[in-house]
Amino acid sequence: MKSKLVKKEIIHSDNIFSPSIDKVGVEERVARFQSRSIKNESKLQGLKIALNMIDLTTLEGKDTPGKVKQMCYKALHLHDVHPNLPSVAAVCVYPSMVRIAKNEVRGTTVKVASVSTAFPSGQAPLDVKIRDTQFALDEGADEIDMVISRGKFLSGEYNFVFDEIAKIKETCGKARLKVILETGELTTLDNVRKASDIAIYAGADFIKTSTGKIQPAATMQVTYTMLMAIKDYYDKTGIMIGMKPAGGISTSKLALHNLVMVKEILGNAWLTNEWFRFGASSLANDILMQIMKMETGVYQSSDYFSID
């Protein structure tokens, strides 16, 4: 009986597949990313890059067409007082709001991302998830943010999770697929790494930390672990995978720390919104306030910026 168990552990594919994570080591390395001194000029450039990487997000039960239109307007007019600002990368909405958002941003560089697959819980049968995704695509979504089935993942049904992602990827066709791991529910960094690998091998174009509904969300430790999975995959195959930390990144300081981390792990190629995104709603204003502070020399007040 005992030998059987041991054997099972050894052949258990995921134990061979994903390396285990040294939590203390991760924490130490992450702490070092936060102590880089960034000169003012680089900081300003970094802030503008970060601004351009934001997926401006509204995912609430109380979303209305008016709210979505307002957010799209903000995506295109971040702070009109300042003439040389980039726009954000995308707006991120529920499938029911995709058409409205698409009409607002048509003809601009801003993309429309839609969450799908019974976001945020992911508790629905596969055919519902596929229809959910197909609906979002038909409405005009450029990108799909799907959630994985965390319940299945935690009960060890990795094949189920893998197949589901692959199926949704198939549905997406050319639209880019971001796979949300909801790391707050995965509890350990080992699980985060495992889920990252599953998502990447199943066809994700992007891996994303969280839905924003569960705390903790995009901690530096989690993002680091996922970036390492991307790096390992790139080293092995030469294929780039995107990264999107989402939830909890609300200050420009934290955004800059993330950029430092991406640069040092993955390199400059990832420092564009094609390969790195921030899922956030209040980050944009904080970055704008920082940029204005740097250019005017005085600390800013939220009174003079748009309401999130």
Binding site: G297, V298, Y299, Q300, S301, S302, D303, Y304
Partner: peptide, 8 residues
């Protein structure tokens, strides 16, 4: 200076 220029 900082106190009197701060927009908030």
């Amino acid at each position: 200076e900082t106190l009197s220029t701060h927009m908030d």
